[in-house]
Design a protein around this nucleic acid. Sequence first.
DNA 1: GCCAAATCTAAGCGTTGTCAAGATGAACTT
DNA 2: AAGTTCATCTTGACAACGCTTAGATTTGGC
Lengths: 212, 212
Amino acid sequence: MKLPCPIVGPKPYHHGDLRRALLEAASRVLERDGPNALSLRAVAREAGVSPAAPYHHFKDKSELMLAISEEGFDQLYDFMRQSADPDAPPMERVAAIGVAYVEFAKAHPSIYRVMYDRSRDLEALPDKAHKAEDGAFSLLKKAMIDRGVVSSDQEVDLELACIAAWCAAHGLAEMVGFRQFDSLKAKMGGEKAFLAGVLSHLGMFGQARNRG
Amino acid sequence: MKLPCPIVGPKPYHHGDLRRALLEAASRVLERDGPNALSLRAVAREAGVSPAAPYHHFKDKSELMLAISEEGFDQLYDFMRQSADPDAPPMERVAAIGVAYVEFAKAHPSIYRVMYDRSRDLEALPDKAHKAEDGAFSLLKKAMIDRGVVSSDQEVDLELACIAAWCAAHGLAEMVGFRQFDSLKAKMGGEKAFLAGVLSHLGMFGQARNRG
DNA sequence: GCCAAATCTAAGCGTTGTCAAGATGAACTT
DNA sequence: AAGTTCATCTTGACAACGCTTAGATTTGGC
């Protein structure tokens, strides 16, 4: 019984494309049962294959997780790009990128967990996400250049500004859901206002900083 | 064979104080074998008891991890406090707190991992770390007040500034070790300069922002 | 049509978190 | 001082996990 899968990549043997199917199964498990339930066996079960089948497409569990993580970074980049209107003023564009980053993490918390669990294990972001010419990092870099944040040492300072922005967005993305902030969110009239308020305090995102 | 443990709390029965011993064993395992090796059984093994013994002191694994996490936040606070000279200018004090935060995470990466793995699972920081009158968060708050960052809506804006700072420090702490930044660190002449550079871009830490 | 390679299954190893049942020994009662 | 109580710890077991090996099955190339 061969599954009809006309858009086959380099691995259209028995199953059709088990590698692709596993990644989609993983995504389903992640959305349904959360990141703690994402075991290699659970993914295989969800895809309808034996627990050992994934080992023909991924060296071990951590390589599967890495692939899931990389897909997540791709999706994150897509969302950031489509949120950053290239015709908008650079200031707004940078802010839009920051908001998009945090909103993605909030909309897909399980994926985001896996993305950074892997990155912390490997002590690096996926090269695809960071180095790629059309990756998320270079999107931010271009917006930063347009905004003109550089000072004396342009090359280094630009890089630093982007890294600082990424770190700030990541920290906020991981902590924005913490219950300690609930009362403040309520006091501000919603999480959206809270988010904008915090971002306004983070240098590179904040045109709102001198509004008070 | 009773262990001599004169400073007994409410549980000085067979072992002496297994709860304390387990936390110390966990700390040893963490430093020696890293966060991925921190299993309930490994901790019990390190403490020299059976795998089921911890269940008389912790409801389940996640409660053990939470206790470890809370101890970590205590240590973090101690380090932040002793790094923030109360007689220093408020500006420097805030910056010192930020540097201390990141340096703690860098010095004890395994503990820091457990601290935030638990927090993410529970979607909250330990109440002890956040609410306590003498906790790390209120230390930051006081320094922020002295520095005078508040704008129109003082109460809310102060809270936002502290949250933003915490998020930024956390993001930086988790990402500062990523290998993608190695070349930039080298170009800047060391990780210390890199760290200061990034912090200077993060609004609430940066008196260096207008130095360029 | 056949062979070699690729793919998947079956079975099993060692480990993990967790639980129920029993052994142990300190503390309280009388 | 003996016996009871009860928190503490051990033993043994279970299901689920990551991973490995051996074998069955299908595919593509000759």
